[in-house]
Design a protein around this nucleic acid. Structure first.
Lengths: 112, 112
DNA sequence: TTTGTATAATCGCTTAAACGAATATAAGTA
DNA sequence: TACTTATATTCGTTTAAGCGATTATACAAA
């Protein structure tokens, strides 16, 4: 992250906060985000790239999937507080985590 | 603050972060901010109002002056971490504090 | 090679927000 | 009442970002 301000701009959008909240659980691919948040593919992709450009995420390609995970270093540990002390007290973000859990279970069952 | 996102939007601008950094020291009027940051009156006023609308500041009128101070409650304690762990390690914000100190000293001396 | 799936990029449009410059308001002082 | 000072607001312009819809790319599997 070049600038602290860039990280804060990346955090000042609800969709991106919701994505970040999910990624605090585990690495996910774009389609996991789409399903858990019930948003379009273009929207998920755009916001993930925005977060990556702010150096808050890294990505890893495997076959046709792109997996995103947190890339939050020491310099911006206030984000931990934001997520654990604020986001996770709000219904919207709690629901998102439950939706993610449900989706990942369904996804696994389809492969068995 | 209605929405966490509104607070984050308010924090995602360098001028507003610089203002917040100063107000972590003490209550200040608009002209103190102008002097310490060397910005125009209109710019100082606009950004202070933006922060106030996000419920991060309160104001208090006394004669022709308007004093602004922090209004950050429990819900957004991550801002403490942002200021103390991040901003205050950066030269720009350290310089601003020194400029504020110098300005307040000059201001006091003029009244003696 | 064709088809399907996952992801990214582009287009056109709309809105928020930043800026300097100028003007308005409101209170204090001469 | 005039004048000054402190602060807020408005105007016109510019830029960043958000969106849905669509198209492009890249890999996999048939």
């Amino acid at each position: 992250m070049e600038k602290l301000v860039d990280a804060l701009k990346a955090l000042s959008d609800e969709t991106r906060l919701r994505i970040l909240n999910l990624l605090y659980e585990k690495e996910l691919c774009v389609c996991d985000i789409m399903e858990a948040l019930q948003i379009s593919q273009a929207k998920a992709s755009r916001h993930l790239i925005y977060l990556k450009n702010a150096d808050l995420l890294r990505d890893r390609k495997h076959a046709q999937w792109v997996y995103y995970s947190l890339a939050i270093d020491e310099r911006i540990k206030f984000i931990d507080s934001l997520v654990y002390d604020n986001l996770r007290n709000l219904e919207l973000y709690k629901n998102d985590l439950q939706n993610l859990k449900d989706w990942l279970k369904r996804k696994t069952m389809n492969c068995e």
